[in-house]
């Protein structure tokens, strides 16, 4: 078939930003998958709870301190995270580097608190089904903090390398920011479920 040129794409930008960025959409899709996983874990928790004569079975409700501290810390981390998003949008390399270092440190702190959170549950995974779901929920969320931390660390190295000053990289930083927001947002219902459902 003969071709007739009817459109010239020369003047388009050579890379899509924001909703024209593929990795943005990819991140969104993976967030949808993971959110479904998180939601299912909460459903399993509530399902088991609905079956049990007493809840939590054979254990006191979890201590509030470590989990609540972690929640406050996560919510507070949104502030520097959003600043980082702004700097990435402005493609300000120096500030983005600083922001990434801060976010890396902030990513380590919840892991430390998590180490105190597991014992604060007063139950082991192999004691009963309550223990199993509690450990799986905490574990699932911890994996997400950990993955995001590794990603942030790698991104920090990247921004200090010769590949750093590139709109594509700033897009990666924005996606990373979005993913951290997601990690924080998914924690809130899990926190409510793990700490307050046993107190109902």
């Amino acid at each position: 078939m003969k071709e007739g040129v009817v459109l010239d794409l020369t003047d388009l930008p050579p890379h899509g930003l924001g909703t024209a960025s593929l990795s943005w959409w990819g991140t969104l899709a993976f967030m949808l998958i993971e959110a479904t996983g998180f939601a299912l874990s909460i459903v399993v928790y509530l399902y088991l709870m609905s079956l049990a004569p007493r809840w939590p079975p054979d254990a006191p409700p979890p201590d509030l301190l470590p989990g609540t501290t972690l929640t406050v810390l996560l919510v507070a981390s949104l502030f520097p995270n959003i600043l980082l998003a702004r700097w990435a949008r402005d493609q300000d390399l120096r500030k983005v580097r600083i922001g990434l270092i801060i976010m890396s440190l902030i990513g380590i702190a919840p892991l430390v608190l998590r180490a105190f959170e597991f014992p604060a549950m007063h139950i082991q995974w192999d004691q009963n089904a309550y223990g199993s779901i509690v450990w799986v929920m905490l574990g699932l969320h911890t994996t997400h903090i950990l993955t995001d931390l590794v990603e942030t660390l790698v991104l920090t190295c990247l921004m200090f390398s010769r590949h750093g000053d590139n709109p594509r990289r700033f897009g990666d930083v924005s996606d990373n920011v979005m993913y951290w927001n997601f990690v924080v947002a998914t924690w809130l219902p899990m926190y409510a479920c793990l700490y307050w459902a046993p107190r109902l």
């Binding site: 078939m1 007739g4 009817v6 010239d8």
Partner: peptide
Amino acid sequence: RDVLPVAAGLR
């Protein structure tokens, strides 16, 4: 039928 409209300008 005969001519396929296309876009140009990609690298």
